[in-house]
C-alpha cells in the first residue's frame, strides 16, 4: 500500500446564513460537506464530480486549509499549491508579473527565485504580450491561465484544482491535461473538481461523486460517470 498524501476522516462542514437571508431558523444552516472520509495516495489523480452546490469547492478548501472543518480530521503529507479556482488569488491592481512575484513570495520563494520563474510562467500561460496589463483587466481565461501556470511552476507535492478546466479554451485545456499527466509521472498528487467528464477515464485513477454534501461513490472513473449521469437525470 502506497503512502497517503491526503487523508480525510469523517469531515463535516456547514455554513450559517442567518444574517444574510430570511430563512426560518432550522433552514439557516446549510450542510455543505457531511461525514466525508477518503484517502488519496501519493501520485494519484482523483477527480471530484457533483452537481452545483454539492460541496466540491468546500471540500477542496477544507483540504487546502482555507476552511476549518466543524468536525473530523484532515491530514496532509507534502507541500500544497495555492488552490486553483476561477479568477481569485491575485491582486486586481497589479500586473501579471507583479502578481507572480507576490504570490510566489507568499508561497515561500525568495524574491530572486520567483523572479527567475516569471518568464516561463508567462510563457506557459501565453501571456507574454500582456505583461503590463492589470489583473483586473484580464479575461476569465487569462486569469485562470496565470494561476494554473504559477501552480505548475512552483513545484508542489499536492495540487488542488477547482473547475478551472472549464474556463480555458480548447488549446489550453489540452496543455493543462498534459501538465497533469507529467505531474502524475513525477509522483505528484492531484485532486480536481470538474464538470467536464470526457477526460476523466484517461486522466484519473479514481473519481469521487459528491451529492448534497455526501460522498456517494468513490472508485472507477467509468462507473462514476455512469452513476453521475443517472443522478443528473433525476
Amino acid at each position: 500500500m502506497s503512502e497517503n498524501a491526503v487523508s480525510l476522516q469523517s469531515v463535516s462542514k456547514s455554513f450559517n446564513f442567518k444574517r444574510s437571508n430570511k430563512l426560518k431558523s432550522s433552514e439557516n444552516r446549510l450542510i455543505s460537506v457531511s461525514d466525508v472520509s477518503f484517502d488519496v495516495s501519493k501520485g494519484e489523480i482523483l477527480g471530484i464530480i457533483g452537481l452545483n452546490g454539492s460541496g466540491k469547492t468546500t471540500l477542496l478548501r477544507l483540504i487546502a486549509g482555507i476552511y476549518e472543518p466543524d468536525s473530523g480530521k484532515i491530514s496532509i503529507e507534502g507541500k500544497i499549491a495555492p488552490l486553483l479556482q476561477i479568477g481569485t488569488g491575485f491582486n486586481n491592481e497589479l500586473t501579471g508579473p507583479e502578481n507572480i512575484v507576490s504570490s510566489g513570495m507568499l508561497y515561500g520563494f525568495s524574491k530572486k527565485e520567483i523572479q527567475s520563474k516569471v518568464k516561463p510562467i508567462l510563457e506557459f500561460a501565453e501571456l507574454q504580450e500582456f505583461r503590463k496589463m492589470k489583473f483586473k483587466h484580464y479575461s476569465a481565461g487569462m486569469k485562470t491561465r496565470l494561476a494554473f501556470s504559477l501552480a505548475m511552476q512552483i513545484d508542489p507535492d499536492i495540487i488542488l484544482v477547482d473547475e478551472v478546466l472549464s474556463v480555458g479554451d480548447f488549446k489550453f485545456r489540452e496543455k493543462s491535461l498534459q501538465a497533469f499527466l507529467s505531474f502524475k509521472n513525477k509522483k505528484k498528487t492531484i485532486l480536481f473538481a470538474t464538470h467536464i467528464l470526457n477526460p476523466l477515464p484517461e486522466l484519473c485513477d479514481r473519481v469521487l461523486i459528491l451529492h448534497k454534501g455526501e460522498m456517494i461513490f468513490l472508485g472507477d472513473p467509468k462507473e462514476a460517470i455512469q452513476k453521475y449521469r443517472s443522478i443528473s437525470e433525476n
Binding site: R61, A64, G65, I66, I80, P82, L83, L84, Q85, T88, G89, F90, N91, N92, S103, L106, Y107, A147
Partner: peptide
C-alpha cells in the same frame, strides 16, 4: 481586500 488571496493560500 485580500480575501482572494486568503481563499487560495492557507496563510
Amino acid at each position: 481586500e485580500n480575501v482572494g488571496i486568503l481563499s487560495s493560500i492557507n496563510l
